[in-house]
Design a binder for these strands. Structure first.
Length: 977
DNA sequence: GATCCGACACGAA
DNA sequence: TTCGTGTCGGATC
């Protein structure tokens, strides 16, 4: 069929019968050269007329025509107009699997394609029948059948929102620059945003807001008056502007009609923004965007709360959607049973069964409408907005499916009252209200329902602006009051992303009074040193003990670190994990952070998910039981035999940071000495006390020297000498004179009394190292767990962990996979990189029997297994040293004084640049075969010492080590951490 | 009196 | 400007 023939046949025809609509569609297929449903799909499952039609619905389907994954189509037919036909399609889009395109037609005049992608802005393709001769317009139709993506608008909703909100940020800045306070500015801008949205979704008539702006552009001085009138009209029932009736908005957003005086340029910004279509903006990101504009320097509170949609859904799905969907499945099966009974039975019994079906549906809808979701740190409301949408989707799906079973449809009941929020920042709280409202209205419109009216916005008291953790209760009897634990409204689900604030940063950020009140109130549930998020976890925990069903919170991944673990341990004792992600990258730019997500239920859950994998059980260290045969490694005990062997290095604290130094007008003094100066001191004549400077000027070892190339630093270290003793060493003592000035400005006054000493001189470490010919060092944070040898008088920095042993056996055991696995599991992390923590890692590690660190190395060397380990360890170390410094590329020079480690210098520039790449981090990144073999040999030797097979799986190794730890630590006391 | 951490920090590519 | 990889100070117990 040619387009001309199609036009001739159908133009201006008005058809009432459905059969004619089908003929129209078949002709359309013929014209486009597309298969008809009968040609393509005999079963009519993926492509056909009257999709979803059942006996009970009387032959009416969810759509007149349906092609799965392509479109749903509805003819005007019985509908009043195309808008009504479109609304019908929207209402059943869920039942049609949300096709990307929704097409409506009135047969004789127009075919209209609406795009229906969730995350793209919406677009309408209008195709008048008369213009089907136009290849472009026919192409649109053809695309609907073959390639809907070709019709997808390029711009995503997020991009749209960024664009429009970006302009508003400019306005906000402009107002702030004129000295207005941020909160009134935010309130005002929120109002403007809502007006634009309302205008574009036709809640405000006749583009009245744009009209107002146009007039104000002519006479800027009247803007205040114009806008004030509009706001006043929106605030009151039956309000008008001129002749236009204005709908009633009552959400607190318009509770006053304060308007800022805007310059013409500023009005132009608003006008330009209003030219965009605001109906599709994504409320989830409004908060961040505005905040960026309001306070570009301070990424405070609000932006910090920003969580992207995918992360939020990782919580909303298991906490809200999955359990409620499961409930619905049960109810639906019940309803199916009743309906089947109703269809079989006649008369009274049939009616009774039908009423039972209705009651079952009503019961479920009632449950849904009473379901409450609380976000106790709701920020700008992203979680609440998405939770509300999820609940509305669930209700809608239940309604549509029930209708397909033959039950009458009722109006959706779920609205913004379903979500409860608590937020400290008033601006964020208000933005949350606006987001939730916009989300609610958008959902209604997208699914073919009108927005609620009279009023359109109700005051959202369920989003409260207050502290979520403590509240101040005034006591009139003594004109004071006290801090008490804040009440949380009762909710079925608790979700959110509490602010991340390390325990050490709480006092500076929140005020020490607040923090001590907080700590006092939560002494029983939140241990000292726990991260700020732990308070939210503790409160959610107590809610779960009450009537709350499920919770899901985001935290930094440091939650599984030592101090915060207690809160999780408590939580896991009587609640059940649903889904846990222990280490997820964070996506917001500017914050390099990793997070843990923890979703819990008050009811037992079969097969919880850990990092997207179903597991039998999850422990409070956020590990699965399967990995360690049910062992909870957090219960590992410190072992006495490992005591006093591992140390962190010194903390000099001789200089404050350069910024502070310049602020105070002080020279940046330091204990550090340049290599050249150090050598001068080392070779200087003996001091008045008859001693050389080698006593107090030593090579300084930082972590980077281990994982990367050695930096050859020196430092002045007086240990625990008295000032009198230290002053004997003239050159070094003069060198550190500036330290005294810095110490005067330190927060700790005691730092001044021993100013010539390092802040932490670690005398016990020096004492432990002094008798040794060499000692073992490892970087505290490094990608690979590396152990190296160093010799006296090198002084390790606090970023280096030292093990005071000089035997190859200990070195070998530490560098074996057994200790590496243990260290990975027991240590903490800095972002995604493991961190060696001596107390939880070294202290608890069970060395092979007879090779424990409390036994002198000579004794252990009597053991064959020990000899083997020593041999492998020596081999590994030698190979690595050769690789690090190939003999033909370096020359070794003695230091200027005897007893100091020799200097390793590249022979020429070429060698120098080559050696730059010879770092242990690089070596272990590449892991050449020889290195692999050396480690294999070592692992086998150590396995033999344990008396274990060499090929144990990682989990098995951990389980065995844990068992050994429990056995050895039985006489010690648990949890002496 | 040491420990543990960093909604990071900084140099290299 | 993004990527890769671990400093070093000091609040906090």
């Amino acid at each position: 069929m040619t387009p001309e023939a199609f036009i001739a046949k159908w133009q201006n025809s008005k058809i009432k019968e459905r059969a004619a609509a089908q003929e129209h569609f078949l002709d359309l297929c013929r014209m486009l050269g597309e298969q008809t449903p009968a040609e393509a799909d005999r079963d009519g499952i993926d492509y056909g007329f009257e999709f979803g039609a059942t006996k009970t619905t009387g032959g009416r389907g969810f759509a007149d025509v349906f092609k799965r994954g392509f479109f749903g189509m509805e003819y005007k037919g019985t509908h009043a107009d195309l808008t009504a036909a479109f609304a019908q399609l929207q209402r059943y889009a869920v039942a049609l699997n949300n096709p990307p395109l929704l097409i409506v037609s009135d047969v004789g005049t127009t075919i209209r394609i609406h795009t229906n992608w969730t995350n793209s802005v919406s677009r309408i393709y209008d195709i008048p029948i008369a213009e089907l001769g136009d290849p472009e317009k026919r192409g649109w139709l053809k695309a609907a059948f073959t390639d809907p993506d070709a019709l997808r608008p390029k711009q995503t909703r997020q991009e749209l929102t960024e664009e429009v909100a970006g302009e508003f940020a400019r306005l906000a800045r402009s107002l702030r620059d004129r000295g207005h306070e941020p909160e009134p500015v935010a309130h005002f801008i929120n109002r403007l945003v809502f007006c634009m949205f309302a205008e574009d979704v036709k809640l405000l008539p006749n583009h009245i807001f744009t009209q107002m702006l146009e007039r104000a552009l002519e006479t800027p001085e009247e803007f205040v008056d114009f806008a004030g009138q509009l706001f006043a009209a929106m605030r009151s029932k039956g309000g008008r502007v001129g002749f236009e009736r204005i709908a009633w908005f009552n959400g607190g957003l318009f509770d006053d009609d304060t308007v800022f005086v805007l310059t013409r340029d500023e009005i132009r910004i608003v006008y330009k923004a209003a030219q965009h279509y605001w109906g599709d903006i994504d409320p989830a990101i409004l908060g961040t965007l505005f905040e960026r504009g309001l306070d570009p320097d301070k990424r405070s509170q609000l932006g910090a709360h920003y969580t992207d949609r995918d992360k939020i859904m990782m919580i909303i799905d298991p906490v809200i959607v999955e359990p409620l969907s499961a409930e619905w499945e049960v109810v639906r099966t019940e309803i199916e049973g009743f309906i089947a009974k109703a269809n079989q039975a006649r008369g009274g019994a049939g009616t009774r069964a039908f009423n039972q079906a209705r009651a079952a549906l009503d019961g479920f809808l009632q449950r849904l409408s009473q379901y409450r979701v609380l976000d106790p740190a709701c920020g700008s409301g992203n979680f609440l907005y998405l939770a509300l949408r999820a609940l509305k989707d669930l209700e809608h799906r239940a309604q549509v499916e029930a209708e397909a079973l033959g039950l009458p449809r009722t109006f959706p009941r779920i609205g913004p009252e379903a979500v409860l929020g608590i937020e400290l920042n008033p601006y964020a709280a208000e933005l949350a209200r606006v987001s939730v409202w916009i989300g609610d209205i958008q959902w209604n419109l997208k699914n073919g329902f009108a927005a609620a009216e009279n009023p359109i916005l109700k005051p959202l008291r369920n989003i409260e602006c207050r502290d979520a953790l403590v509240s101040w209760v005034p006591d009139t009897s003594f004109a004071g009051g006290k801090w008490v634990s804040a009440e949380w409204p009762i909710a079925n689900a608790i979700i959110g992303n509490p602010p991340f604030l390390g325990s050490r940063k709480m006092a500076p950020a929140m005020g020490s009074q607040y923090v001590s009140a907080l700590r006092k109130i939560y002494t029983r549930t939140v241990p000292k040193g726990a991260d700020f998020v732990c308070f939210w976890f503790a409160k959610a925990h107590s809610a779960l003990r009450g009537s709350t069903e499920r919770m899901g919170l985001v935290s930094t991944n440091s939650l599984s670190n030592a101090a915060s673990r207690q809160v999780l341990r408590d939580l896991f004792t009587d609640q059940y994990p649903i889904a846990v992600w222990r280490d997820e990258p964070w996506t917001v730019s500017g914050a390099a952070v990793r997070v843990a997500i923890v979703c819990m239920s008050s009811e037992p859950v079969a097969n919880p998910m850990l990092d997207d994998m179903a597991v039998d059980e999850i422990h409070s260290d956020l590990r699965s039981a399967g990995t360690t045969r049910g062992a909870d490694l957090t219960l590992s005990k410190p072992l006495r035999e490992n005591a006093n062997k591992a140390y962190q290095g010194v903390v000099p604290r001789g200089s404050i940071n350069p910024t502070d130094a310049s602020r105070l007008g002080l020279p940046n003094g330091d204990f550090a000495v340049s290599a050249a100066q150090a050598r001068e001191m080392l070779v200087a004549p003996l001091n008045p006390n008859g001693r050389p400077n080698t006593d107090v000027v030593v090579p300084y070892l930082i972590a980077r020297d281990l994982a990367q190339r050695p930096s050859g630093r020196f430092i002045v270290a007086f240990g625990t000498m008295t000032e009198r003793e230290a002053a004997m060493y003239e050159l070094p003592f003069n060198h550190i004179a500036p330290v005294k000035l810095h110490r005067q400005h330190m927060a700790q006054p005691e730092a001044l009394t021993t100013w010539w000493q390092h802040w932490r001189p670690r005398p016990e470490m020096s004492a432990a190292l002094a008798p040794l010919t060499r000692f073992i060092v490892t970087p505290r944070v490094s990608k690979h767990r590396l152990f190296l040898w160093r010799t006296h008088p090198i002084l390790p920095d606090n970023a280096v962990v030292v093990v005071a042993r000089e035997d190859d056996v200990t070195f070998g055991v530490l560098h074996s996979r057994f200790h590496e696995l243990w260290a990975l599991r027991m240590g903490s992390t800095l972002e995604d990189r493991p961190r060696y923590t001596p107390t939880t890692t070294f202290q608890t590690f069970p060395f092979p029997h007879g090779l424990t660190p409390d036994i002198p190395s000579v004794v252990s060397m009597a053991d064959d297994a020990a000899k083997h380990i020593a041999h492998c360890a020596k081999e590994l170390n030698q190979l690595r040293e050769n690789w690090l410094n190939p003999a033909d590329l370096v020359r070794r020079e003695p230091e200027v004084v005897p007893g100091y480690p020799e200097r390793i210098l590249p022979i020429n520039e070429e060698a120098e640049s080559f050696l730059k790449k010879r770092t242990l981090t690089n070596l272990y990144n590449e892991r050449p075969a020889w290195l692999h073999h050396a480690h294999e040999a070592l692992n086998e030797a150590v396995a033999a010492a344990y008396g274990w097979p060499a090929d144990l799986g990682d989990d098995e190794v951990l389980a065995r080590l844990f068992a050994l730890n429990q056995e050895r630590g039985s006489e010690g006391h648990a949890d002496a951490l």
